Computed example of a mutant assay.
Amino acid sequence: MTQNQNAVEKMNAFLSEAFAPWVQQLNIKAVEITESGAVFNVPASEALARTGGIVCGQALSAIADTIGVLTLIGHNNDDRIMTTVDMTTHFMRPVMTGDVEATVTLLSNGRRMATARIDIRQAGNPKVCAGATCAYAYVDG
């Protein structure tokens, strides 16, 4: 098994072990760890839709925050305790009920803080539907 496969498995395991049950119900799956971040898939779910078959913004924000943390877990190769200290989300176009692809780019990953950029797309569509920038503080010293 490669180091990247190990990191993907670690991210998926951390999600099932450390996050609240309602976050686990989003069914987020780490697909790939990249040099600067990671790629995720969230399968279609009617539970995430609001009227009109649009994935609700609350779900997209939760996905963005969660995959930012998971990416840091994968890149740091540890389970450092962190907390979100700031998050800005922009919704540019609707995400219709269906599979969602998301990419994380780590902008910084320091000793005490980290910042990530998250882009969310409808699966198979190159246009960004929602984007978030999240800042995390490591609370372990």
Rank of each mutant, 00 (worst) to 15 (best):
V23G: 03
Q24T: 12
N109C: 03
D140I: 02
A7S: 10
N12C: 11
A62Y: 08
Q3F: 00
A135I: 04
V23I: 15
A7Q: 14
D99S: 03
P43T: 02
Q24S: 03
I81S: 08
T105M: 11
Q25G: 06
Q25H: 08
I118F: 13
W22Y: 13
G57C: 13
V39A: 11
L106Q: 07
E17Y: 09
C56P: 03
M11H: 01
N4F: 02
T2C: 03
G68T: 13
V95G: 04
D99V: 09
Q122V: 12
G131P: 00
N77L: 05
D65S: 11
V55A: 04
A44W: 00
I33W: 00
F14Q: 03
N76P: 07
A47E: 14
R121Y: 07
C134R: 00
M96K: 11
N76M: 10
V100C: 01
D119N: 11
A137R: 12
A7Y: 00
D65I: 04
V100P: 01
T84E: 12
E9F: 08
Q25W: 03
M1W: 04
H75I: 09
C134V: 15
A44K: 12
L26Y: 02
F91Y: 15
M1A: 12
P43Y: 01
P21W: 06
N12V: 01
G124T: 07
D79T: 15
L70S: 12
E35I: 07
I118N: 02
T97W: 00
S61R: 06
A62K: 07
G57P: 13
Q122F: 03
Q24A: 10
T2R: 06
T83Y: 05
M92K: 06
A64V: 08
Y138P: 05
M1H: 07
V128E: 01
E101P: 02
C129T: 09
W22F: 15
D79F: 06
K127M: 12
V23R: 02
C56L: 07
L72T: 09
P21V: 06
P94V: 01
I81H: 14
T34M: 10
S45F: 07
A102K: 00
Y136H: 08
A123K: 09
V128H: 05
G131D: 08
F91T: 07
V8R: 04
A49T: 15
I33G: 00
L48M: 15
M113I: 15
M1N: 09
L26R: 02
L15R: 00
T88A: 15
G124C: 10
F14I: 01
T66C: 09
R117N: 12
Y136I: 10
A18C: 10
N41P: 03
W22L: 09
A62C: 15
T71G: 14
C134W: 08
T71W: 11
S61N: 11
V95S: 02
E9Y: 10
G37V: 06
T88F: 01
P94R: 02
A59F: 04
A130P: 03
A132Q: 11
A62Q: 12
A130R: 09
V139I: 12
I120C: 06
T89G: 05
G74Y: 08
E46M: 09
C56S: 11
N12H: 08
A44N: 10
A13M: 07
S45Y: 02
S36N: 10
A47Q: 14
V69W: 05
N12Y: 06
L106F: 04
